[in-house]
């Protein structure tokens, strides 16, 4: 086994991990801001992917068209989900979140089956440009784009939360909604904003993932579990943690699939996850 090959595996893993971070960032934001786990997150990604498919088939548009459209559409979906559903289930116990968002997931997943049919859709693979070789390692254009955007989106979200006044108001609401209200912040507006941002990030993720992945109504299931593990591993409320966790999972997955066997890669990822929680119950970069 050559070093180049091993390096190629690691690079593939890092790119994959950046993509994981990209489609986890929305989930991470919602979880951190509101302590809500969105079980329909995978379906949000799926709808972002269908947006890219539709934009391509209807008007021949690549990611430059589909990314902003998906951001707007899924962002709107996030706001709608917040006002019509999430706002109300937050009054109930934590279980209501699972109940409500799981119902939403089924609704969206099979609504997509109804509208788009069961067939697998793919985008032409030269939509983002061809792969290139750098230092003996192959880079696939669409993955590099998705990975880079994943990195940028995560860092921007992090900066927004930590460096801007909107961000500090959002954090204030997440820490104590009543106290924030007394200071003149409208919690519902901040929370709706969080859902809009999360939806937009998720839509962008979906539109980019669609450039190198297949799209089908059930694809969200495949992606959602990865996103859950990524966010939990990264730690509650830490967008940056999700990035680190995504990269870690990507590399662990690639290396274990290559060195041990692809069947065991999930086992190893889950085992690493449970082990990390054993030593750090708050995740890699979470605060208690």
């Amino acid at each position: 086994m050559t070093t180049t090959l091993l390096l190629q595996v690691v690079v593939s893993g890092l790119l994959l991990g950046a993509v994981y971070a990209l489609f986890s960032s929305g989930l991470s934001l919602i979880w951190g801001m509101m302590n809500v786990v969105n079980f329909a997150h995978g379906e949000f990604v799926m709808l972002g992917m269908y947006t890219a498919v539709v934009v391509w088939t209807a008007m021949g548009g690549g990611p430059w068209a589909s990314v902003p459209i998906a951001a707007i559409l899924i962002g709107t979906l996030g706001v709608l989900a917040y006002f019509l559903l999430v706002r109300h289930i937050m009054r109930g116990p934590m279980l209501a979140q699972i109940l409500g968002t799981f119902g939403l997931a089924l609704f969206l997943r099979y609504g997509a089956l109804w509208v788009f049919g069961a067939n697998f859709k793919t985008l032409p693979d030269d939509l983002v440009g061809h792969s290139f070789i750098l230092g003996g390692i192959r880079f696939e254009g669409s993955r590099v784009l998705a990975g880079a955007v994943g990195f940028i989106v995560t860092v921007l979200l992090h900066l927004l939360l930590t460096r801007t006044s909107v961000g500090s108001r959002m954090l204030a609401v997440s820490e104590d909604a009543t106290a924030a209200q007394l200071m003149g912040i409208r919690p519902q507006r901040m929370q709706a904003l969080a859902w809009a941002l999360a939806g937009a990030a998720t839509g962008i993720a979906g539109a980019l993932v669609a450039t190198f992945f297949y799209t089908s109504p059930t694809v969200g299931e495949t992606l959602a579990i990865v996103a859950f593990v990524t966010v939990a591993l990264g730690g509650f409320g830490s967008v940056l943690g999700a990035l680190v966790a995504g990269l870690l999972i990507g590399v662990v997955e690639s290396l274990s699939a290559f060195l041990i066997g692809p069947v065991y890669k999930d086992v190893i990822v889950y085992a690493v996850f449970v082990l990390v929680l054993w030593f750090r119950p708050q995740g890699l970069m979470g605060t208690t």
């Binding site: 090959l5 595996v9 593939s12 994959l16 997955e253 692809p262 890669k265």
Partner: peptide
């Protein structure tokens, strides 16, 4: 799978 690159490699 989310990714099959390791197998192909």
């Amino acid at each position: 799978s989310t990714d099959v690159q390791p197998q192909v490699l």
